[in-house]
Amino acid sequence: MSLLLGAFTAFQYVHSEDKDQYSKLLKILETPQPKYEIQDRDYKIDTKLYKNEYEVDWASRPQFNVSAQEFKYYKNAIQVKMTVIASTGYIGDAVVVKSSGSKIIDQKVLDAVKLARLDKIPYVDKAVTYNLIYDFEIKKPL
């Protein structure tokens, strides 16, 4: 009987200790906590690990046709600024920086550029993009 009584008192002691822990946790949960703020950290990547310059070429060139009638309004090369997704080579956005003098030709070039693709840059994160400015010189149609 005394052995059973000793085990019961040990159980009561553990149980009361758990109650204290639960009450402390409950008190923490009920207490308003200060607003959590993310600390700004300067992460610097070692420049020796990455190339600073890459050479890319067209994986699929932009294709557009200009008629002789449309070419009459062509004055100079079209300069297009492209935002390229580095890991895939897809062109996310394209904007005319310098017009050819013809809105129709400019629009044809923009539409063709958005369907084209550049070479992929290997081992680059999917979120990395770069900007590229390219001049499109249009030859006189036959």
Rank of each mutant, 00 (worst) to 15 (best):
A59C: 04
D106H: 05
V97D: 08
P34T: 02
A68H: 06
A7R: 08
D18R: 12
F8H: 06
S67V: 00
V97S: 07
A10V: 09
P32T: 09
D18F: 10
Y43N: 07
A10F: 11
D57H: 09
Q21H: 11
I45V: 15
K51A: 14
V109W: 04
E70K: 04
D20M: 10
A10E: 06
Y43W: 06
I104E: 15
V95M: 10
F71I: 03
K24I: 11
Y50T: 15
E53M: 07
Y74V: 00
Y36R: 09
E17G: 09
S23L: 11
K72C: 04
K81C: 05
T31V: 00
S60T: 15
V66M: 00
A68P: 02
N65K: 11
V66L: 03
Q79M: 12
Y54K: 04
A7Y: 06
S60V: 13
T83Q: 11
D40L: 09
A94D: 03
Y13P: 02
D20C: 10
K44F: 10
I38Q: 06
K48I: 04
I38D: 06
I38E: 09
Q63G: 01
Y13A: 15
N65Q: 10
V14C: 08
D42Y: 10
I85L: 15
D57L: 07
K72S: 08
E70R: 05
Y54R: 07
L110M: 08
R41F: 11
